[in-house]
Design a protein around this nucleic acid. Structure first.
Length: 268
DNA sequence: TCGGTTGTTATTGT
DNA sequence: GACAATAACAACCG
């Protein structure tokens, strides 16, 4: 479940493997990822890469001559470097001279790759309407972004038009770090908590990027038995003791999404 | 067989 | 209009 941190790890890897080069060979395993125009996708992949950027949870590969490719991993998508073009769940593979095959894998096929002409990516609605990255913000900035909303803080953080890159896991972890109750409404959260939240976001994402940095990132629930452990303090830890105070961690559900919290550290 | 999992959007309802 | 809940998308795991 790639959120900002996982996409940032992907960005660094893909930049290392692909920047300044272009694909010499392309295999579209799954026509669905090409969005109906496999030829355009192949043409883009065969264009030299100028830079690899991240915006929120989107990976933007900018090409020479101004076009771009945009990957969105949704739930289970990822890009890996592979000696063969067809590891399990491969949807798209391209071979870059001087590197291995790069493979877009996506177990559940909800991810997408979009092709853009010059100037088009930044006008693409999800990008154009996206809120600021969660870096360098103050409590007052957050207050301004939330406005007069009476929605849950959780819902606002997950709304990419309000702020970019925050996902469901991050909400549980951030609220636990800062001491915000999961049902908190935006207009009732005091300034000190908003300031703490604003300060904690970059710290949290930087910590996660540092810990996840690897050629192939492992998502929660993957690679069980392979020694991959849940790196989070409260996420997916219902019934376990809070690492800070020992109270039992609880799970609440809003809109079908779980939020984990410590009832003692995050009182209502 | 059912419930749960990640992100996002369309739809329906209060 | 604001807000919230649900299903759908696809596939897998326990």
């Amino acid at each position: 479940m790639p959120e900002l941190a996982e996409v940032e790890v992907a960005r660094r890897n893909v930049a290392r493997w692909w920047e300044g080069r272009e694909a010499a060979e392309v295999i579209v395993h799954d026509a669905k990822v090409a969005g109906g125009d496999a030829a355009a996708l192949e043409r883009a992949l065969r264009t030299r890469v100028a830079s690899v950027d991240r915006r929120g949870k989107h990976l933007i590969v900018r090409l020479e001559r101004g076009g771009a490719l945009m990957f969105h991993f949704r739930m289970t998508g990822k890009i890996v470097s592979s000696p063969t073009p067809e590891p399990r769940f491969a949807r798209l593979a391209w071979r870059v001279p001087g590197a291995d095959w790069l493979v877009f894998k996506d177990q559940r096929r909800l991810g997408e790759v979009l092709v853009f002409g010059p100037g088009e990516v930044d006008a693409h609605e999800p990008i154009a309407q996206m809120g600021p990255e969660p870096y360098g913000l103050t409590g007052e900035d957050l207050s301004g972004l939330f406005g007069e909303s009476r929605r849950r803080v959780k819902d606002l953080l997950l709304d990419q038009r309000v702020i970019a890159g925050v996902g469901n896991i991050a909400v549980s972890e951030l609220f636990w770090r800062v001491g915000i109750t999961p049902e908190a409404r935006a207009h009732t959260v005091d300034a000190a908590l908003l300031a703490a939240l604003a300060a904690e976001m970059p710290a949290y994402f930087d910590w996660l990027v540092a810990g996840q940095m690897a050629d192939e990132i492992m998502y929660m629930g993957e690679a069980e038995g392979a020694g991959a452990e849940n790196p989070f303090d409260v996420y997916a830890r219902e019934g376990e003791p809070c690492p800070r105070c020992g109270a039992e961690i609880e799970r609440v559900v809003f809109g079908g999404r779980s939020t984990y919290h410590c009832p003692a550290c995050q009182p209502k």
